[in-house]
């Protein structure tokens, strides 16, 4: 089992008392599997994704990723996990504006120590970014920027790809194209995919779907 969550709980400080966001989540995900995480706004989807990615820590529960108990890791351990095991695709792309497209794509692979120039170039070509490698993010369209972010994630060859509404900022046609490419490439690398989405159509394209309601699995 690549990812195993048991009784994960998380609250955030409220005006009077802590506001529970996740109220005991159990989840298993195998290598090569894809799962859509759906639910209304505020249901805890993004929070769950952040906990899995080691960006935040749960208040209670246990989270194992690739045989490592993530909940027991300190800051640097979780940073190493994000570098080496997890790849993240954000709704806002989060590219580095001062690096060109080529350097942005290679960035995480370099951090992980898995940079392969030829493989990166091939990946960029497949994503239609070949002619844009010397450009800077501000010179790209939204779809091109998200493809760059996907390329950055996949070039590092992570075991688990976490995507937080990756098409949320794109028009319908572009969103469909970007999702096609992402699913295809993730499947090729054998990585698992956990994707937050509001779209039932996109969720239907995943292997499994987990619906959250008020911090619990519905």
């Amino acid at each position: 089992m690549l990812l195993k969550l048991r009784d994960i709980r998380k609250s955030f400080p409220g005006a009077d008392a802590p506001v529970p966001v996740l109220r005991g989540i159990d989840l298993d995900l195998d290598e090569g599997e894809s799962m859509a995480l759906t639910g209304e706004s505020g249901s805890g989807k993004s929070t769950l994704l952040h906990l899995v990615g080691g960006l935040d820590r749960p208040d209670a529960g246990r989270l194992d990723l690739d045989g490592v108990e993530v909940t027991a890791l300190d800051d640097s351990g979780r940073a190493a996990l994000r570098r080496g095991t997890v790849g993240m695709v954000f709704q806002q792309f989060n590219l580095i504006p001062s690096l060109n497209v080529g350097d942005n794509i290679a960035f995480q692979a370099r951090l992980a120590g898995r940079h392969d120039a030829a493989a990166t170039a091939a990946l960029a070509e497949r994503l239609g970014l070949g002619p844009h490698l010397a450009k800077y993010p501000e010179q790209l369209s939204g779809g091109q920027q998200q493809r760059t972010a996907i390329a950055r994630t996949l070039a590092a060859r992570p075991r688990l790809v976490l995507a937080d509404e990756p098409t949320g900022n794109l028009d319908e046609a572009t969103a469909e194209a970007v999702l096609d490419t992402m699913l295809e490439l993730v499947a090729e690398t054998g990585a698992a995919l956990l994707m937050v989405t509001h779209s039932t159509h996109h969720a239907a394209r995943m292997g499994r779907r987990l619906h959250l309601r008020a911090g619990r699995i519905a």
């Binding site: 800051d75 940073a79 996990l81 570098r83 997890v86 989060n94 995480q108 951090l111 992980a112």
Partner: peptide, 13 residues
Amino acid sequence: PVLRTMRALGVPL
């Protein structure tokens, strides 16, 4: 935002 991205990608603080 860049620093936040870098940390999210695994650069230790």
